[in-house]
Design a protein around this nucleic acid. Sequence first.
DNA 1: CGGTAAACGGACGCCCCCGTCCGGTTGGCT
DNA 2: AGCCAACCGGACGGGGGCGTCCGTTTACCG
Lengths: 219, 219
Amino acid sequence: MRVVTDRLPHALRSDALDNRERILDAARALFSADGLDVPLREVARRAGVGPATLYRHFPTKRTLLAEAFADQLHACRAIVDEGCADPDPWRGLCLVIERICELHARDRGFTEAFLSAYPGAEDLAAGRAYTVRAVAGLARRAKEAGRLRSDFVLDDLILVLMANKGIRAASAASQVKASRRFAGLVIQAFEACPRHAPLPPAARLASAGRGPVDDGSTP
Amino acid sequence: MRVVTDRLPHALRSDALDNRERILDAARALFSADGLDVPLREVARRAGVGPATLYRHFPTKRTLLAEAFADQLHACRAIVDEGCADPDPWRGLCLVIERICELHARDRGFTEAFLSAYPGAEDLAAGRAYTVRAVAGLARRAKEAGRLRSDFVLDDLILVLMANKGIRAASAASQVKASRRFAGLVIQAFEACPRHAPLPPAARLASAGRGPVDDGSTP
DNA sequence: CGGTAAACGGACGCCCCCGTCCGGTTGGCT
DNA sequence: AGCCAACCGGACGGGGGCGTCCGTTTACCG
């Protein structure tokens, strides 16, 4: 899979490279706003190119997705790294939850891709695996600090992301607002508290069809 | 649950009535499992009738939806009534949340219809309005009893339903399990607790395009 | 400035869904 | 038994998305 097309010099003609960027911009805009079900034709139209041009640059939809969401994936990773860097693991975890929820609220397409609603997109899956692994460590530390409830399971975060995906508001602003409130609710539900009754058992979630999240954090 | 199709005598021929039932059964099964995006052709195929027959009985998709989900709507209402009948409003509210979430987890199509992901379906909207009104009273009492956090807003329940809708698992069993755990989390987040920090402000949600839920419970 | 290879995009055929029409079939009543 | 009306479902035309082909244009280089 080609990630760095502009690394080798002059592999693309100038107009081709220009179109490529235009296609990516259009894809990002449309996928973010309307999800992954946007017809590729529509992307091409918005980019001002013919369908053939789009298919030449991105033979399949997943190649387009992989490139279009590279930014978001990096943002995701940055958020997780920032959370992990926080000396207070609970605060770090809260930050991760809030920021990731907001990121997903702002970009519907990325959410669908991240949760592998769309088949393929290995790059995203790989990025997600890294993210999951890092958060697992954060959660473990938060538990040891006594701030995160002990019956928390990593799949709960996937649960939260899926749930966050379900939230839909009319405007982008409301969407972020609603997601923020939701994150607040979730965080309070996760916080260790003597009044907390034990939760129902966790379920195996269909994550990327590769089985549930496997991490080494719950021995 | 049988609505009144057989109230007017002999309005339909026996084979017509038989087909009608078969179509409704097929619709219920497919909508429940796969959501509302199932092609009507598929419903007809499963019912063992031609497309024309389906369209004759249900000229538009919403007429089919309205009848297909009448049962679920009644179940919904029954759950709410049961919750309201509980002398402990908090326990009643918890019951409502748990049962409604499970109901929605078992029936994807009903969830979409209930949240008006699909335009039309006035009957559902009316039923939803009743439900919302009743739950509003329950929430008010739970607040007065000091068990429900005071910054709870009725829209939070819509938020929860939308979130619950986002949860998706491979099997129906996992789906219910995941939804149950989610409901548990939400309930704990809703419970009044001195450790609770205030939540982010509620957002206006896009509910049925008719503006946000309007109830008289928060004067 | 001219040649060439690369890139462009309009157009094509395929498939699926939709909603409707019409000739054949069957239930119900006398 | 027999008739009629109601009902059935295969078939049709329309629309839209998909992925590909090919004649034309254009950037690059000598």
